[in-house]
Each structure stands twice: as C-alpha cells, then as structure tokens.
C-alpha cells in the first residue's frame, strides 16, 4: 500500500481574523488549523477524525481550493497547490472532487438530476449525446433508476440524494474523492448502503478517498489509515485495523472509551471519560493543546508542543510526550 502521495499537506495553518473598528484592524484570531501535516496516498482510504469544530471541514475546503491556507504548503502530485489557478483549476477539479455532509443542501433545488450531474460534462464541452449516455451509465453505477434524470432533488430521500451527489463527483473520473461526513446526516440502515456503494465505486473508479468523519468505529473498519485531529492539529495517525486496539494518544483513548458498548457485562465502569470543554481557538493553550483536559499531563506538556514521532514500522505516529519512545 505504499503508492505515491497524491496530496502532501505540510504544516498548514488557517486562522480567521476578527476585525473591528473603523480601520478594520485585526483584534483577534480564530485559529482553526494549527499546523497540519498529512499525506494522502494514492489508492488508499485515509480517514480524518475529530470532534465538531476541530477543523476537519476547513481542511477539506482548503484541499478543494475553496479556502486558501494562511501558511504552510500543500503539494498536489508533487506540485505546489498555489500554482493551480485560472484554467488549471478546472483540470484540478477533474482530479479532485468532494461530497458534502448534508445531501439536502448540496443539490441545487431548481435543477433536474440530469442537469446536476450532466452540468459537470457540459461545462467541459462534452457533446450532448455523450453526456446523456455517461449520465445513464453513472446512474446505473450508483444504483438509481434511470427515470430519475427528469426529477428534482426534493423528490428523493436523503440516501438517494447522497447517491446523486456521489454521481456528480464521480462523472469526471476524479482520482481523489474528499468525502466530508458523507453519511452522518443519514439514518443507520442508509449509512451502510452508502458506505458499501462508496467502497464498490472506489474499486470501479480507482479512487483515493479522504474520508472525514467523527465515527471511529466506522473508520476503523474501512480506512487504511486514520488521522485523529484535535484543535487543528493531528495528534495520532494509525492504521485503521489497529485503531481500536492500539490507539494510544490520551485524546484518542478518551474517544475510544466514549464509544458506547452494547453488552452490559463487557462495560468497564472504571473507564475515564473526557472532561472539560475544547479550549477557545482564540486563546490556544501553551504546549500540547490537549494538556488542559489530559488526565496524564505532566509539566512538560504545558510548555513544549510534542512533535509527531513514529511508534513502529507499521505507519503508526503519535504526537505526545508520554507516548513517544525514549
């Protein structure tokens, strides 16, 4: 699974200034991303986990070039991200596509399905006949009735809408699909179907996927690697199949402990749950960002930010003073 990296994110930061006064001077900063390092390997499903507000969606928007990073570098196929502009952008969007969390707001309510999907080809000057046949084919791939083309989004259920969103993204044959919480707005039975569909399409379309979610259970099953984010930094990267057993960062452990267990006899009442609130991104804590809530924090954690270090040869990395091998 050691393909080339399709995306390399190097020390990316993003803050939003809060301005005030007549001169619009900067009064404070909301620090959303505070130095993210992550690479997305061709052919893999990379998971990105974290609580709401930790910066997952901001990172997705930066990767889609909807937002510009405040600092840091992103490489796409080894080339700097900032070089992609003007006409290069259209080509970039043939390589990278995204599906959104809420299928109720991600489809234009005034367009028919054939236009929502077909538009992707129309703006690339694909002839009408070819457009229609490709739309028909992709509807078959996402298992939607071919008579759906003349319907409007409101005539579909949430799961069907998400399929349409997937079709819109895949019709240009992208290499990388960014899936921002693609199933968290759907009910459980539909979630499974969409995930299975995504997995099937991954093979059919040779996709690399960045799978953003807050559901660790789900990611452990399906992702090659899972990166866990806290307050705009990645605290641990672990192969998906090892996540449940070897997730080791105190934050990741707390998250794993908070997953409900259905069998009462297997419940462990001594498990420590996470306490406190996520710190205010306007005033970041010194040292490790997790130290105010960390049950194991030592003095060093309050002073020095821990670097990301490898734990073993299997691609397990952690950013924690206590877990780093001596």
């Amino acid at each position: 699974m050691d393909g080339p990296n399709i995306i390399e994110i190097k020390n990316v930061k993003k803050y939003f200034p809060i301005t005030g006064g007549v001169l619009k001077t900067e009064k404070a900063r909301i620090n959303v991303l505070n130095g993210v390092d992550l690479s997305i390997t061709e052919g893999e499903i990379t998971g990105l986990a974290g609580e709401s507000g930790c910066g997952k969606s901001t990172l997705a928007k930066i990767l889609m070039k909807l937002l510009a990073p405040s600092s840091g570098e992103i490489l796409f196929d080894g080339k700097p991200f900032s070089d992609i502009r003007g006409k290069g952008k259209r080509l970039f969007y043939e390589n990278v596509q995204m599906i959104f969390q809420d299928p109720y707001s991600s489809l234009n309510p005034r367009l028919k399905v054939k236009d929502i999907i077909g538009e992707m080809l129309r703006i690339r000057n694909v002839p009408g006949a070819e457009e229609r046949s490709r739309v028909r084919k992709i509807l078959y791939d996402i298992k939607l009735d071919k008579n759906s083309v003349n319907k409007y989004p409101h005539e579909f259920s949430g799961g069907q809408r998400q399929r349409i969103a997937i079709a819109r993204a895949l019709i240009v044959n992208p290499r990388l699909l960014i899936a921002d919480e693609p199933v968290s707005a759907l009910d459980l039975s539909t979630q499974d179907k969409i995930l299975e569909l995504l997995e099937e399409l991954k093979h059919k379309y040779n996709l690399t996927i960045l799978f953003i979610s807050h559901d660790l259970n789900l990611m452990a099953d399906r992702c090659n690697r899972v990166a866990v984010m806290y307050l705009g930094r990645i605290v641990e990267i672990v192969p998906g199949r090892h996540l449940m057993k070897s997730g080791t960062h105190p934050y990741v452990k707390a998250l794993l402990n908070s997953i409900p267990v259905s069998d009462p006899s297997k419940r462990d009442n001594r498990k420590k749950l996470i306490t406190g609130e996520v710190p205010d991104p306007e005033n970041l804590p010194g040292g490790c960002y997790f130290n105010p809530r960390c049950p194991e924090a030592i003095l060093r954690c309050r002073i020095e930010q821990p670097p990301m270090v490898p734990l073993n040869e299997k691609g397990h990395y952690v950013s924690c003073h206590l877990r780093a091998p001596a």
Binding site: M64, L66, Y93, E94, S106, N108, R110, I123, R124
Partner: peptide, 26 residues
C-alpha cells in the same frame, strides 16, 4: 455558503455561470 454553491464552485465552472444558473433561480 450553501453546499450546492460550493459544489458548483468545485465543478470548475465560471463565476458568471454560478451566478446565473445556480444563484439567480434560487
């Protein structure tokens, strides 16, 4: 900031088209 406008932006179409095909009718 609705997702379908973001989706239109990431489709690679022109701002002009986004304004008149995706925003105006809504």
């Amino acid at each position: 900031e609705r997702d379908y406008i973001l989706a239109a932006k990431t489709s690679g179409q022109s701002d002009f088209r986004i304004m008149f095909v995706h925003i105006l009718p809504n």
